[in-house]
Design a protein around this nucleic acid. Structure first.
Length: 506
RNA sequence: GGCGGUGUAGCUCAGUUGGUCAGAGCAAGCGACUCAUAUUCGCUAGGUCCGGAGUUCAAAUCUCUGCACCGCCA
């Protein structure tokens, strides 16, 4: 039986439209999912939408539609973008779906019955746009410390989750599992947050109705984060533990933005503890994108719209850039010059041109039909070895979610290929028919190295990989077995196709 | 205010437990080749490793301090 791998993105809030930040997490998840599938795993890749809450309710009212109508409308934009970006999710959960609502009610009731959710009274300041409660001391001049907007004082009956009870258990878990929260700098922040003491968490609201009612008391709506976080198991069929839940839970990694780390590394694990369910294996918080050096914001009108980028530069260029430019976990800057630079240098000049010159020679010297090859010489062995070794290195980096390093490792093989051509000078060999055997061997090594490279790149640049492999005459399946040296055989037909990535002249 | 982090070539950054650690990629300059998307390959970087003090035979790497920037919490 195949090993399983479960990876999630956050579910995106329908009160926002998709931007590069959403695309970032989702592309990362997709690469991970595609990579693990390539390596033979039974992968479940989940994304979805978060559709409840006061903000959606209000926005819908303003727009003159029902909350669900608003959600339906916005969800389509996310789904259309994922389609364009080639996202290979297995499931898309919406919090308004029955399967989700049932699961949330069920886990809430379970914790309620256990006594870890209790009815109490709440008195605090609430910021509606942020869906966040603040204590008196947290306010800055009486306003929301996050968004600086008006807050309202709320005194209301509320259900509380006994989060304080799980403080020690959570801390013990984090200490026993160094990789549970990543990257490390973020882990330290969470540790210090917990050490300051966890208070019980209000997990219901009575100020709006757009959400999932508390079981047995429908005056109360379940807190949006309790609702939203639970998607990771309701999508697997929870509370039915026999199907996908039993197969895939606990999740291998929750990919998230750094802004929602606390919800995923404190709230969510303690909810699970209270429900007696296993904890996620890993929560990885990536960084934020600035745009041309500035913080992305609606008021600056510099929000990067992924569709526009795809129109202009192509899907794989965008996928490549966001994973290569910045180490996953760090903040980074998005700029058009940096993007164009990456495209021209890495994609057009390096990998694109390598395939172009290689296939052109195969066609020119052998009419596109790969001849039988001879013994590998030292230089051939070196290229082969470099290619083969790369696979292990990439595997290690992928496990660390070091996408940028993984791509660098792949590009070292690309560079080695370009250098190999210069060192072997096939055009010189081609001048003397006596060298045809040697020429065949050289061309073989060159093409085979790229076949393997493009096979592993299928996780990152699926469309490009398909084109490149077709050009290399590879009709076989793109699988782990295809990563072994020796896939190409005599008689394979090589064709020169249009450039994978045309240079962008500005 | 508390805790933590960062500050290394023009740019983005690597630099394990202190002793070839002064590096990589990109940009720039020079040279070579011609199969290729004027692409590739080779060579060229003398940068106070933020400032100052200290520990040590030896510090970018440890300690203290100052400055700048950032994150989490309050």
């Amino acid at each position: 039986m195949k090993p399983t791998f479960y990876v999630t993105t956050p579910i995106y809030y329908v009160n926002d439209v998709p931007h590069i930040g959403h695309a970032y997490t989702t592309v990362a998840g997709d690469v991970l999912a595609r990579y693990k599938r390539l390596m033979g795993y039974d992968v479940y890749f989940l994304t979805g939408s978060d559709e409840h809450g006061q903000k959606v309710e209000k926005a819908a009212t303003t727009a003159g539609e029902t909350p669900l109508e608003l959600a339906d409308r916005v969800v389509k934009r996310f789904q259309a973008l994922w389609e364009r970006l080639g996202i290979s999710h297995n499931d898309f959960i919406r919090t308004t779906q029955e399967r989700h609502k049932n699961g949330v009610s069920s886990i809430f009731k379970k914790i309620l019955d256990k006594g870890d959710i209790y009815l109490g009274e709440y008195e605090d300041w609430y910021c509606t746009p942020c869906e966040t409660f603040w204590t008196e001391t947290q306010l800055i001049e009486g306003r929301c410390p996050d968004c600086n907007r008006q807050v309202e004082k709320l005194k209301e009956e509320s259900y509380f989750f006994r989060m304080s009870k799980y403080q020690d258990q959570l801390m013990a878990h984090i200490e026993a599992n160094p990789d549970f929260i990543q990257p490390k700098s973020k882990r330290n922040e969470i540790i210090s947050f917990i050490k300051e003491g966890l208070r019980d968490l209000s997990v219901s609201r009575t100020t709006f109705t757009w959400g999932i009612p508390v079981p047995g008391n429908d005056r109360h709506i379940i807190y949006v984060w309790f609702d939203a976080l639970t998607n990771y198991i309701t999508a697997l069929g929870y509370p039915d533990e026999s199907g996908n839940y039993g197969k895939y839970w606990p999740v291998d990694v929750h990919l998230i933005g750094k802004d929602i780390l606390r919800f995923h590394s404190v709230y969510w694990p303690t909810f699970l503890m209270a429900a007696g369910l296993p904890l996620p294996k890993k929560v990885f918080a990536h960084g934020w994108w600035t745009v041309e050096g500035q913080k992305m914001s609606k008021s600056l009108q510099n929000v990067v719209e992924p569709n526009m980028l795809i129109d202009k530069y192509g899907v794989d260029a965008v996928r490549y850039f966001i994973l290569r430019e910045v180490p996953f976990g760090m903040d980074g800057d998005f700029s058009h010059t940096a993007l164009v630079q990456r495209i021209n240098s890495d994609l057009a000049n390096d990998i694109g041109n390598l395939l172009s010159r290689s296939t052109a020679m195969a066609v020119k010297y052998f009419g596109g039909t790969l001849p039988a090859i001879g013994e590998l010489t030292e230089i051939d062995q070196a290229l082969k070895q470099k290619t083969v070794d790369m696979i292990e290195v990439v595997d290690k980096f992928i496990d660390e979610l070091a996408f940028s390093k993984a791509l660098q490792a792949i590009w070292e093989v690309i560079s080695a290929g370009n250098k190999y051509i210069d060192d072997t000078a096939p055009w010189t060999l081609a001048k003397d028919p006596a060298n045809s055997g040697r020429l065949a061997t050289v061309m073989y090594c060159l093409l085979e190295s790229q076949r393997i490279t493009h096979t592993i790149l299928s996780a990152f640049l699926p469309a490009t990989s398909t084109k490149a492999l077709a050009s290399l005459g590879w009709n076989g399946a793109v699988t782990r077995e295809g990563l072994a040296w020796g896939g190409l055989t005599a008689g394979t037909t090589i064709t020169k196709t249009e450039a994978l990535f045309p240079r962008i002249e500005e």
